[in-house]
Design a protein around this nucleic acid. Structure first.
Length: 457
DNA sequence: GTAGGGTTAG
C-alpha cells in the first residue's frame, strides 16, 4: 500500500511537470502507462490535468477530463470545480460559471472560500459589481474565513469597475481592523489609482508601502512607470526606471517592454536598442508582447523587410499574432510609404478573423494623408463606423497641408461638437492656415468654439 | 484551484 501511495505521489509530480510545460499529451500518456504498471491515479492527478486543460486548451477539453476521471472511478472534488469555474471566468463564460456552480452543488460538493472568490472575480470581470458585492457580503456573513485574496479580488474589482473610492475605503477599513496587506494588495490599489489617473494618491500609497515592512517589487515599479508613460510624463517614468535599476531590481519582460515602448515612442532609438539587447540576452523567454515590441522597433527603424521576416518567425514559431502585431505592421508599412502593402496587410488581418480595428484605420488615414492621398483618406474616414481624436488629428493636419483649410475647419467643428479637443499643434496649424488663406472670420469663429469646448471640459 | 505590472496610431 505504502509503495503504491508513494508511486502515486511520484506520478503526480511527473504529471505536474509535464502540465507546467504544456505537454498535456505526455501527461496523459504517463497516466495510462502508470495504470498499466499498477500505479493508481488519484483526484490530485486528475485535478492537475483539469487545471492545465483549462489554462492551455479550453473548459470543454477540461470537462472531458472530468468525464474520464469519473469513468476511472474518481469523484471530482471542490478543487476540480474551482479549476473549471476559474477557466470559464477567464474565458468570460458567465452562464457556464453559473451552470458549473449549480452542478457542483448538485453533486453534493460544498463550495469553499476559493469558489466564492472566483465567482466574485467573474462578476467583476463581467461588469456586475453589485452581484460581486453580494457574494462578498455572503462570505463575510457565512462560516467561511475570507482569505487575503478575497479582499484583493474585491479591491481590484472595485477599481476596475470605476469604484476607486470604495476600493480605497475598503483598504483603509481593513487596515483599521488589523488586516496587514501583503504587497499584492498595495500593487492592486496603486494600479487602480494609476488607471483612474490619480497619480498623487498612488504615490501616497507607495509612500505608505515604503513605511511598512514591505518593499516594492518589479510589479509596483512597472505599474507606476507605465502610468507615467501613459500620461506622457516620459522623464518621470524614466527616472523610476533608473531608480529600479540602481536599487538592483531585476527587469523582467514586463518592465523591459514598458521601457522599450516608451523609448521608441519618444525616438530614443539608442536606448531602445540597448534595452532590447539586454532583454534578449537576459534569457527571458520571448512571448508575443516582447515580439511585438521587437517588431515595433524594426518598423520604427524602417526595416520593413526584417519586420516581415520576424513576422514569419513568430507565426512559424507557434505563437498566434494578435491585433497589436498586425497594427504595428500596418503602421510600419505606412511609415515606409508602402500604402498598398499596408492595405494588403489590413486585408490579411481581416482574413485572419480580426475585427476592424480603429488604430489600424488611423494608421492608414495618416499614411494616406502623408502620401498626399487626402481624398482616399477622406473616403476611408467616411467608411469608418467609429472615429476618435487620432482620426481627426491626422485628417485635419493633412487637409491643412493640402491647402484645404475650410474642409479641415468643418471637420474640427464636428469633433468639437462631439466633445473632442485636438492637439495644440493641430489647432495651431489650422488657425494659421485659415488666417494665411484670408479666412479670418472662420478662424475667429473656430477659436471661440475651441475656447468654449475647453471651458466645458 | 484565486488577486497585481508590459506591446499599436495623431
Amino acid at each position: 500500500m505504502m509503495v503504491c501511495r508513494l508511486s502515486t505521489l511520484l506520478l503526480n509530480v511527473c504529471i505536474s511537470s509535464f502540465c507546467k510545460v504544456r505537454l498535456l499529451g505526455r501527461a496523459e500518456a504517463v497516466i495510462i502507462d502508470g495504470i498499466r504498471l499498477g500505479v493508481i491515479p488519484d483526484v490530485v492527478t486528475y485535478n492537475t490535468l483539469v487545471h492545465a486543460y483549462c489554462q492551455f486548451v479550453s473548459v470543454d477539453a477540461a470537462y472531458s477530463v472530468v468525464h474520464r476521471m469519473k469513468e476511472a472511478g474518481i469523484s471530482p472534488d471542490v478543487v476540480t470545480y474551482n479549476s473549471l469555474i476559474s477557466g470559464a471566468t477567464r474565458n468570460h463564460l458567465l452562464s457556464r460559471v453559473l451552470d458549473l456552480f449549480e452542478e457542483m452543488l448538485q453533486e453534493g460538493i460544498h463550495p469553499d472560500v476559493w469558489s466564492y472568490n472566483i465567482l466574485m472575480h467573474c462578476f467583476f470581470k463581467l461588469g456586475k459589481p453589485d452581484e460581486a458585492n453580494r457574494v462578498f457580503q455572503d462570505i463575510l456573513l457565512s462560516d467561511l474565513t475570507p482569505h487575503a485574496a478575497t479582499f484583493n479580488i474585491m479591491i481590484n474589482g472595485l477599481c476596475k469597475n470605476g469604484y476607486t473610492d470604495n476600493a480605497l475605503m475598503l483598504f483603509r477599513n481593513l487596515q483599521r481592523h488589523g488586516f496587514v496587506p501583503p504587497l499584492v494588495t498595495y500593487n492592486i490599489l496603486i494600479s487602480g489609482l494609476c488607471k483612474a489617473r490619480r497619480v498623487g494618491q498612488a504615490r501616497r500609497i507607495l509612500k505608505d508601502l515604503g513605511e511598512s515592512s514591505l518593499k516594492p517589487n518589479a510589479v509596483t515599479y512597472t505599474t507606476v512607470m507605465s502610468c507615467c508613460f501613459r500620461s506622457k510624463q516620459y522623464d518621470q517614468g524614466l527616472e523610476i526606471m533608473s531608480e529600479m535599476k540602481s536599487k538592483g531590481y531585476t527587469f523582467d519582460g514586463f518592465a523591459y517592454c514598458t521601457v522599450i515602448a516608451a523609448l521608441l515612442k519618444t525616438g530614443r532609438m539608442e536606448g531602445a536598442n540597448a534595452f532590447m539587447e539586454q532583454m534578449m540576452n537576459s534569457g527571458i523567454e520571448m512571448d508575443l508582447v516582447s515580439y511585438n515590441t521587437l517588431l515595433n522597433k524594426l518598423c520604427k527603424e524602417g526595416k520593413v523587410e526584417a519586420a516581415y521576416k520576424l513576422l514569419d518567425e513568430i507565426e512559424n514559431g507557434g505563437l498566434l499574432c494578435d491585433k497589436y502585431t498586425h497594427t504595428i505592421m500596418i503602421d510600419g508599412l505606412c511609415k515606409a510609404g508602402n500604402i498598398a502593402g499596408a492595405q494588403q496587410h489590413l486585408h490579411y488581418m481581416n482574413m485572419m478573423g480580426f475585427q476592424e480595428n480603429l488604430v489600424a484605420f488611423n494608421c492608414l488615414i495618416d499614411g494616406l494623408g502623408k502620401a498626399g492621398e487626402i481624398d482616399r483618406a477622406m473616403e476611408l474616414y467616411n467608411s469608418m463606423e467609429t472615429r476618435d481624436s487620432f482620426t481627426y488629428d491626422s485628417l485635419v493636419l493633412n487637409l491643412c497641408k493640402a491647402g484645404r483649410v475650410l474642409c479641415a475647419s468643418k471637420l474640427m467643428m464636428k469633433c468639437l461638437r462631439e466633445g473632442m479637443i485636438l492637439l495644440y499643434s493641430t489647432r495651431r496649424a489650422l488657425l494659421d492656415g485659415l488666417r494665411s488663406s484670408g479666412f479670418t472670420n472662420e478662424a475667429r469663429k473656430l477659436q471661440s468654439k475651441i475656447r468654449l469646448a475647453r471651458l466645458l471640459r
